[in-house]
């Protein structure tokens, strides 16, 4: 309907984003009626998302025409931004930014490096950046979920953890059930995406490849390749994140730091 009113693509885009924003805001209002307050966080995220993607879109053409080595710096910048965003889900966890940065850079970074070396990801900047950003973005979501779940589980089980310590357990043993649950829950979106691939959703990458003239069967297989890489990078990131956060939750004298109150 909107395309009947707007012939200019820019105005059409703005009208479409206003419509999508209105739907998103309606959901926020619905949540508010159930006493779930997302207003400020959702408003900031929507505006920020729009500004960021428009800004990146404006310079993307220039970036994608740049020399190949710039892709390394672009991916590194993405990792640092992803670490800052996911660390915000871990308030109270000491060193959460460092944990997120190391996890995402080693987890997503190693999958990108290996797959690029194997030729699965094309070294052309126009392929490396979009595919790499998908892996980093998913690793960021996984890290945020893992840190958030770890924090809430530990705070809910301070009594159990300190009882185990008081009986002579090592920190790793005392916290093992919560590390495991945060790892498992952080991977639910990646597993569900892989499971529902082609049935519930046809991802943008595949649609883009079809539009640009790739053979449908190759586009489908490559989409699976991307999803498998996302799963591998998310899994490795979550594994590293939960390992690192475990060691940051205790002092050298094996005292629980994340207690939520002062004693």
């Amino acid at each position: 309907m909107l395309n009947r009113f707007f012939t200019d693509q820019l105005y059409l885009g703005l009208a479409q984003s206003a419509a999508a924003g209105l739907v998103a805001f309606a959901v926020v209002l619905l949540a508010r009626s159930r006493k779930v307050h997302l207003e400020s966080e959702a408003a900031v995220a929507l505006v920020r998302g729009l500004v960021q993607i428009v800004a990146v879109g404006s310079v993307l053409v220039a970036l994608l025409r740049g020399p190949q080595w710039t892709s390394v710096f672009l991916l590194m910048a993405m990792v640092l931004a992803a670490a800052a965003i996911s660390a915000k889900r871990a308030k109270g966890i000491p060193g959460s930014y460092r944990i997120a940065a190391w996890s995402i850079s080693c987890g997503a970074g190693s999958v990108i490096a290996v797959m690029t070396c194997l030729g699965v990801i094309d070294t052309a900047i126009t392929a490396l950046i979009p595919v790499g950003s998908m892996l980093i973005a998913n690793a960021m979501n996984t890290t945020g979920l893992a840190l958030n779940r770890f924090r809430s589980d530990v705070l809910a089980h301070v009594g159990e953890i300190e009882t185990a310590l008081a009986l002579g357990a090592k920190p790793n043993e005392s916290i093992a059930p919560y590390v495991q649950s945060s790892f498992e829950s952080s991977l639910i979106p990646a597993i569900d995406s892989l499971r529902s691939l082609g049935i519930v959703w046809i991802p943008g990458m595949m649609a883009g490849m079809l539009v640009s003239g790739s053979r449908p069967i190759y586009a489908a297989i490559y989409q699976f390749v991307v999803m498998a890489m996302i799963f591998a990078s998310s899994g490795l990131t979550s594994l590293l994140c939960t390992m690192l956060v475990r060691s940051h939750a205790f002092t050298d004298a094996e005292q629980l730091l994340l207690r939520g109150e002062s004693h």
């Binding site: 009594g159 159990e160 009882t163 185990a164 310590l165 008081a166 009986l167 002579g168 357990a169 090592k170 004298a253 094996e254 005292q255």
Partner: peptide, 23 residues
Amino acid sequence: YRQIPPSELRRRVGMVTQRAVLF
């Protein structure tokens, strides 16, 4: 007690809390 590994110290100095926390 800083010379004693924490897990060994806590084995030697047992604790019973107000509310029993059982696994």
